[in-house]
Simulated assay, not measured.
Amino acid sequence: MNDFITVIEDLTELFQELIQIEQLKLEAAKKNRITHVEESMNKEQAAILKLRGLDRKRELCQEALGFKGLTFQEILSKTSGEEHEQLKNQFNTLSHYVRLFQNINDSARTMIEINLHKINNVISNATNKTASDKR
């Protein structure tokens, strides 16, 4: 069980890291700092690769514990005592950071989409002006 708890802790730390990356990306998008957005996206991609590895490790730990394919809530229903409390706290903390990451990620995505829309409008207006000037 200790390996499983360690993986959950590692996932929590990774989501804390992802939250920082997303916050930087959001701020960069708000300020139209494209290179900073790109840097954040590169860091995010590296963290996502790490996330995939940790998720695979979590799956293996769950399988070794006889919890293959179970949700965190289902795992909690199969534990008791101190182990149950420890897992419950870990799962709650991880869930909190995952939700926070998703919220910031959604905000950053929206900001980037707004900026892209503005850029497309400028390009479209410039193209239309150039076309009308040629007539």
Rank of each mutant, 00 (worst) to 15 (best):
E85H: 06
I21E: 03
A29P: 10
T110N: 13
Q20V: 11
E27G: 09
E22N: 03
T110L: 08
L18K: 14
T79A: 00
F67S: 01
K50V: 09
E74S: 04
L54A: 01
A47Y: 05
R99C: 13
L14N: 02
I112C: 06
G66M: 00
D10W: 01
K88V: 06
K30C: 01
S40T: 07
L94Y: 02
M41Q: 10
E22W: 00
Q45D: 09
R56P: 03
L116R: 11
K68L: 07
E59R: 04
K88E: 14
A108H: 04
S40V: 05
T110F: 09
E82M: 08
I119P: 09
K57S: 07
K30T: 08
K25D: 02
F72Q: 08
D10K: 01
D106F: 10
K118G: 11
E74L: 09
D55K: 02
K31S: 15
H36C: 12
S80M: 13
E63Q: 05
A28F: 10
Q20K: 13
T35C: 09
L76R: 01
S77F: 03
N120K: 15
V98M: 12
Q16A: 01
Q45T: 13
N42Y: 09
F15L: 02
A28P: 10
G53R: 13
H36Y: 15
H36L: 15
Q90L: 12
